[in-house]
Amino acid sequence: MSPPPAAVVVSPSFGEVVDSVPVTTTDEAQLRRQAFFAVVFAALCIGFSPVLVRYADVGPAATGFWRLFFALGPTVVWAFAERRAAGRRPGAAGARRGPSARQFLLAAIAGLFFGADLVAFHSGLARTSTANAVLLGNLAVVFVFVFGWVFLRERPTRGLLIALVMALSGTLLIISSSAVSGAASGRYAVSVAGDALCVAAALFYAGYMLTTRAVRRAGTGDAAPLGGGMASLIATSSGAVLCIGWAVATGEVLIPQSLQGLLAVIGLGLIAHATGQGLATFALGRLPAGLISVVLLLQIVVGVALAALLFGEVPSLAVFAGGMLVVAGVATARPNGRAA
């Protein structure tokens, strides 16, 4: 998922926007239409992620490393173009300076959270079904609001409480279904562990989103928020370091063993990360965050449909019902604020 980021530095869940040049009213409607089609295409691209992970023939953490490694090229281009554009704007004195120590640290921590998310999600996906993985991975948004409630003392609304009940009920239904089917097939511990790892991945992704939100805002002593491209470059790099370190420490297979495996990890970097998440970031500058977040739930449909078509993974009725509760809870928890 998670879906759904690290070519994406700005999470769709928070209404953060891409720095943009002001446009005329005439152009605005066209840009909003383009943004809508961009986010639909983004959801389709991100939906390929779990299928590509299954085709990868390296370890879970190594898959995460190659995924981030192949996203680095487009991210470098993005950061460079962003910095040049900022330097040309009127009154952009100091725009070419590097990130402050605080911004660099926050972006690096965001990348570590994202790397941990990839390791957990890829490990969980190897132990459970694609439907379970993508549904549970989308709990990240709900966890973000829970963390805001517990740690930031942000008073929850009635809608949030309803969202929590629906999402957590769906989670319990999905995991209990895995337990029952796992017991019948003699893989009880494996199935439940896979679901638990995907929930852990959602927790890590929630940490990534919260840290990203902080790094994208100007802080004390910072002249301006850190641009999305530069923040993404730092986060992608630190996440890649964590993934390769974990892969080496646990003795995973590091090098793709076939052309199929190589193409899978290249696809993860270029399709799921650079293209999918990049288009979602573009759309954030023109559309309400709530609309984008709901459209991005299409990635669940794409991932589950591809898994059913390619691997014969047809979700059970219990998983389908639990999935509907998770999707409803996530959609309800998404903020309705407008990108600004």
Rank of each mutant, 00 (worst) to 15 (best):
S2M: 13
P5T: 05
S11W: 04
V17T: 14
D27C: 00
A29W: 07
Q30Y: 06
R33Y: 03
V39G: 05
V40G: 12
L44H: 04
G47R: 05
Y55T: 07
T63Y: 00
P74N: 04
V76Y: 06
G91Q: 08
A92S: 10
R96V: 11
R97Q: 06
L112P: 02
F113H: 05
N132R: 02
V134L: 01
N138M: 08
A140F: 09
V142Q: 03
V146N: 07
R158N: 12
L172Q: 13
S176L: 15
V180S: 14
S181R: 13
G182Y: 03
A184L: 10
A184S: 11
R187Y: 12
A189N: 15
S191W: 14
G194Q: 06
D195Y: 08
L197N: 06
V199F: 15
A200D: 11
A201Y: 00
F204E: 08
Y205I: 09
Y205D: 09
G219M: 06
G227V: 04
G229Y: 01
S232P: 05
I234M: 06
G251I: 12
L259F: 13
Q260H: 04
A272T: 13
A274C: 08
L279G: 11
T281M: 03
F282I: 10
P288E: 11
V295P: 14
L296F: 10
Q299G: 07
V301D: 09
E313R: 11
L317F: 14
V319T: 08
V319R: 00
R334F: 13
A339N: 15
